[in-house]
């Protein structure tokens, strides 16, 4: 019917792109990397913390991965674990600084955000690491490919699998329960035998690990290591967690809500992008919708209490 009203539109999809699977596949693929970061961010926020370093760690581990794979020509069986370990180590360092020196998470991870970005630039000497005219290692192509007759991106599968694993961690392990307890009342948790510092440190370590997963995916998607990669991703992933309804005060929320938040942000940006809405309007609309989504979440909670 729409096609009947607007005929002959220079080769445009007649039904409207929203009604094609490609549109949704692209959205999922584009926001999977943010979503992977948001998984780690969720557990940090559940403990009433915040991690501003995930974007920089994404850039750093992406560079690290590209360096190992392209410059040193190592096997992916070495490159991927090493990159993941690097991200986890940085995350654990965040946790140790926060718990043993009692530094506020905001400050500690801000410091990590700056220094990881510096390290990312150092690895590549301020430049991108790319294959150039030599052969690109096959792993890049493999991670950025799509399966099921080109209908589902590998990164989306990694994202959804992480969601599943995190759901299990949060709902079916002691560790997960302890995360909620620390976020809800850390003194009560401590007196109930929860090793608060250990659990907290582990939460930041996991956030670092997820940054590294995202970093490897990002490098594979772009076929190079970019020292500037992931700038501003920390804020997007925090927004995804919060829009889902996980409380920044800690103790309330869940990974399923983060999936919801990821979809909300993904769809907003995708709908605005596909309509070619001007950039200035986009920012305004995005801001308004984020506020509206949070207000709706809040009122939903108020009626429940």
């Amino acid at each position: 019917m729409i096609g009947a009203i607007f005929p002959g539109m220079s080769g445009e999809n007649k039904l409207g792109a929203f009604f094609t699977w490609d549109y949704h596949r692209d959205m999922l693929r584009d926001y999977s990397i943010h979503g992977i970061l948001a998984c780690g961010m969720t557990i940090v926020i559940l403990t009433a913390g915040i991690d501003l370093s995930v974007g920089s760690l994404l850039g750093m581990t992406g560079m690290f991965f590209a360096h190992l794979m392209i410059n040193l020509q190592l096997s992916p069986a070495v490159g991927i674990p090493f990159s993941l370990v690097a991200g986890t180590a940085a995350g654990l360092l965040n946790g140790v600084v926060i718990t043993s020196f009692r530094i506020q998470p905001f400050v500690a991870t801000l410091a990590m955000m700056v220094s990881a970005r510096g390290l990312a630039k150092f690895i590549g000497g301020g430049r991108k690491i790319q294959a150039g005219t030599q052969q690109l290692p096959a792993i890049f192509e493999q991670i950025s490919s799509q399966v099921l007759n080109n209908n589902l991106a590998i990164v989306t599968i990694i994202f959804l699998a992480s969601m599943g694993v995190f759901w299990l961690i949060l709902n079916r392990t002691r560790f997960g329960r302890h995360l909620y307890a620390i976020g809800g009342n850390d003194e009560a948790a401590r007196l109930s035998g929860v090793r608060v510092n250990l659990v907290r440190t582990a939460a930041y370590g996991i956030a670092g690990l997820m940054s590294a997963v995202a970093g490897v995916c990002y490098a594979a998607r772009t076929y190079y290591g970019d020292p500037e990669a992931g700038q501003g991703y920390e804020l997007t992933s925090i927004a995804m967690v919060v829009i889902g309804g996980t409380s920044l005060i800690g103790g309330r929320g869940g990974i399923f809500l983060t999936l919801l938040g990821t979809l909300i942000i993904g769809y907003i940006e995708k709908i605005l992008s596909i309509n070619g809405v001007e950039i200035a309007y986009r920012f305004m609309v995005e801001g308004a919708i984020i506020v509206a989504a949070v207000i709706i979440q809040q009122t939903g909670r108020r009626t429940r209490l």
Partner: peptide
């Protein structure tokens, strides 16, 4: 310092003895 207020009654009650409620590491 007693309750974890945002958690459910169930989760508050089992917080200390979660170890007894796991099987192969899973709750």
């Amino acid at each position: 310092s007693g309750l974890v207020l945002p958690m459910s009654v169930l989760h508050n009650m089992t917080l200390v003895s979660l170890r007894d409620m796991t099987r192969f590491g899973w709750l």
